[in-house]
Design a protein around this nucleic acid. Structure first.
Length: 218
DNA sequence: CGCCAGGTGGGAT
DNA sequence: ATCCCACATGGC
């Protein structure tokens, strides 16, 4: 299908233009490949929750601060009260809700053996589709394509999908267009692309996608 | 200073 | 199923 082909071309264009992104970012550095330790895995999960509708910069501040206070571990978090935790993660926004989410997730994480199922993740209060898929892909190396607001924006503006595409149809498009080994990199590249060019108020000048996007821009 | 950021859950339609 | 809204801080 032509749409699939264009999605694949988009990925190749972004990769050759921006280079490999080396995701998931951990506090203070970037991490390539699967997390090596349980601690890194936990940090990725925490970041996935804290970054919900929030700029990564604000999340990074929180993670670095938790790390410095030796609180960046499931056991340490589990000993904190929800109120204490909320104060510690304040600058990531929605801190009251997120404190509850993190507490619930942490209990889940401590009881985990091996890789969680998507359904188990989704059953947790505060874990929706994007967060579940981010955790599966970046913390556990499962071959799941992560859809976020950026992914939908690009796909929609390029005419790969209609306006306001659903999570599942967006996921299906990219899942079928790309090899599973590229899911990790593709998501990271789409984020980078939207930060540089495909913003809410698009900066079409200098956009690497150029002619393959019919979006009029501003 | 208003806009925007790697969403989610709950309630109404 | 699909809208609509609350949730909150920080940087540009």
């Amino acid at each position: 299908m032509r749409t699939r082909n264009r999605a694949e071309i988009l990925y190749r264009t972004l990769l050759s233009s921006y280079g490999p992104q080396g995701w998931w970012p951990l506090s203070g550095k970037y991490h390539r490949g699967l997390p090596k330790t349980r601690s890194q895995r936990y940090e990725i999960c925490l970041g996935a929750i804290l970054t919900q509708n929030t700029a990564w910069r604000n999340v990074d501040t929180v993670l670095a601060s938790l790390r410095q206070q030796k609180l960046l571990s499931p056991k340490a978090i589990s000993t904190l009260s929800e109120k204490k935790l909320a104060a510690l993660i304040r600058s990531s926004g929605y801190h009251n809700q997120k404190a509850r989410k993190v507490k619930l997730f942490t209990e889940f994480f401590l009881s985990l053996r091996g890789t969680p199922s998507r359904a188990d993740l989704l059953s947790l209060w505060g874990v929706g589709e994007e967060t579940a898929d981010s955790i599966l892909l970046y913390a556990y190396g499962e071959h799941v394509f992560v859809v976020d607001a950026y992914t939908r924006r690009v796909a929609s503006r390029m005419g790969l999908l209609g306006p306001d595409p659903s999570y599942s149809e967006t996921q299906e498009l990219f899942s079928q267009a790309l090899p599973a080994s590229a899911y990790n990199e593709a998501h990271a590249l789409l984020v980078e692309h939207c930060k540089r060019s495909c913003r809410v108020r698009p900066v079409c000048e200098g956009c690497v996608v150029g002619g393959d996007c019919g979006f009029a821009g501003i």
